[in-house]
C-alpha cells in the first residue's frame, strides 16, 4: 500500500530526510549556516501567512491577534499577515473582525455558510497563495496554539529543510497541555497508520498547528481533505514527497468552550478517519507544482 516514490524535489539545497528537530535554538542557528548561497542574492522580507479558521471564536480571536502583534514585534523583519477565515460564525465574529481586523492588519474572509475546518483552512491557503506567502501557518482560533512558538515552525521552512512542520505535543521537549489518554491513544494509532500507509513519521497526527512551504500551500490550496484534515492531509503530502518534520511545542488548554469529544464519539471518529485515510492512498490527486510552475516543467529542466 505504501505509495512512496523516489523524491523529485528540485529546489532543495541539502538532502532532505524526515527530520525531527530537537532544539529550536539550534535550529535557528542551523538556518543561518544552511543558506550561504542564498545570502548573496538580494534578500527580501519573508512573507508569513497565518491562517486562522474561526467558528464562533469571537471571545478568543482578539487574544490570538494580540499575540500575533507580539510576534511582529519579536520578528520585525517578517511580513506577517493573519488571514482569519470566519467559517459562517453565528456569534458577533464578523462585526468584531470588521472593527478590529484593520487595526491588526489582518485579512478576514467571511464564509456565508459553515463549511467545516477543512474547507475553511483551504480558503485561507487560497488567500495565502494569492498573496505569495513563503510560509503558511495554520493556527487555531481558540487560542490553544501559542503564537510565540511560531518561529520554531517557520524557520525550518525558510531554511528549506522541510515543506511541512508540525507543532507536536508528544515529542521530547514539548509539554504544557497534555491531552486525555483517549486522544493520545488515538493520535498514536493514526501515527502508526500513516507510517504503514505512506511511510512517514509523525507523532502528533491530530495537531492543527502546522506550517507549510509555498509549494505545499499551493498544493493544499487545490486539494485539501474536508472531513478530517489533520490526519488525512498527510497522505497526499507524503504521496508528493513533501518533507514532513516535527518540532516540540507547548500547547495551552482552551480558554473558552469545550471540546466535543466523548469516548464513544472518538472511537467512531477513529474508524471514520482510518477509512478516509486509507481511501486517500488510492484517490487521484492533483499534481504538485513548483513555485507556481507545473511539476512536469520542473522535471524537464536540465
Amino acid at each position: 500500500m505504501a505509495l512512496k516514490k523516489q523524491p523529485v524535489i528540485a529546489r532543495q539545497t541539502t538532502p532532505l530526510r524526515l527530520i525531527s528537530i530537537k532544539n529550536p535554538r539550534q535550529d535557528s542557528a542551523a538556518t543561518q549556516q544552511n543558506t550561504p548561497s542564498i545570502a548573496k542574492l538580494p534578500a527580501r522580507a519573508p512573507k508569513i501567512a497565518i491562517v486562522i479558521p474561526a467558528y464562533n471564536e469571537a471571545k478568543n480571536l482578539e487574544k490570538v491577534l494580540d499575540e500575533l502583534q507580539k510576534l511582529r514585534k519579536a520578528r520585525p523583519r517578517w511580513r506577517i499577515l493573519p488571514i482569519i477565515i470566519n467559517d459562517g460564525s453565528t456569534d458577533h465574529s464578523k462585526e468584531l473582525l470588521e472593527r478590529v481586523g484593520p487595526l491588526y492588519e489582518a485579512y478576514s474572509v467571511h464564509l456565508p455558510l459553515n463549511l467545516g475546518i477543512g474547507s475553511a483552512v483551504q480558503t485561507g491557503f487560497q488567500c495565502a497563495v494569492r498573496w505569495g506567502a513563503d510560509v503558511t501557518l495554520q493556527l487555531d482560533g481558540d487560542g490553544q496554539h501559542p503564537a510565540l512558538e511560531i518561529p520554531n515552525l517557520v524557520c525550518p521552512i525558510l531554511a528549506k529543510r522541510a515543506d511541512v512542520v508540525v507543532g507536536s505535543r508528544y515529542i521530547k521537549g514539548a509539554g504544557g497541555n497534555v491531552s486525555s489518554s483517549m486522544r493520545q491513544w488515538g493520535t498514536y494509532f493514526f501515527s502508526r497508520l500513516l507510517k504503514v500507509l505512506v511511510g512517514i513519521n509523525v507523532r502528533d497526527t491530530t495537531s492543527g498547528f502546522r506550517a507549510f512551504s509555498a509549494d505545499a500551500t499551493d498544493f493544499l490550496a487545490r486539494y485539501y481533505p474536508d472531513d478530517y484534515p489533520e490526519v488525512e492531509a498527510y497522505v497526499p503530502l507524503a504521496r508528493h514527497d513533501f518533507t514532513i518534520s516535527e518540532v516540540p511545542v507547548k500547547m495551552r488548554p482552551r480558554s473558552h468552550g469545550a471540546s466535543s469529544i466523548t469516548p464513544i464519539r472518538s472511537l467512531y471518529y477513529m474508524i471514520k478517519v482510518a477509512i478516509a485515510t486509507m481511501m486517500d492512498t488510492i484517490r487521484p490527486i492533483p499534481i504538485r507544482r513548483h513555485s507556481g510552475r507545473l511539476q512536469e516543467e520542473v522535471d524537464r529542466e536540465p
Binding site: R11, S28, T31, Q32, T35, I38, L41, P42, A43, R44, A45, P46, R77, G132, D134, C155, L158, A159, A214, S291, G292, R293
Partner: peptide, 8 residues
C-alpha cells in the same frame, strides 16, 4: 516567478 531568496 518569485524571488525565492528570503531573509531569515
Amino acid at each position: 516567478g518569485r524571488d525565492n531568496s528570503v531573509d531569515t
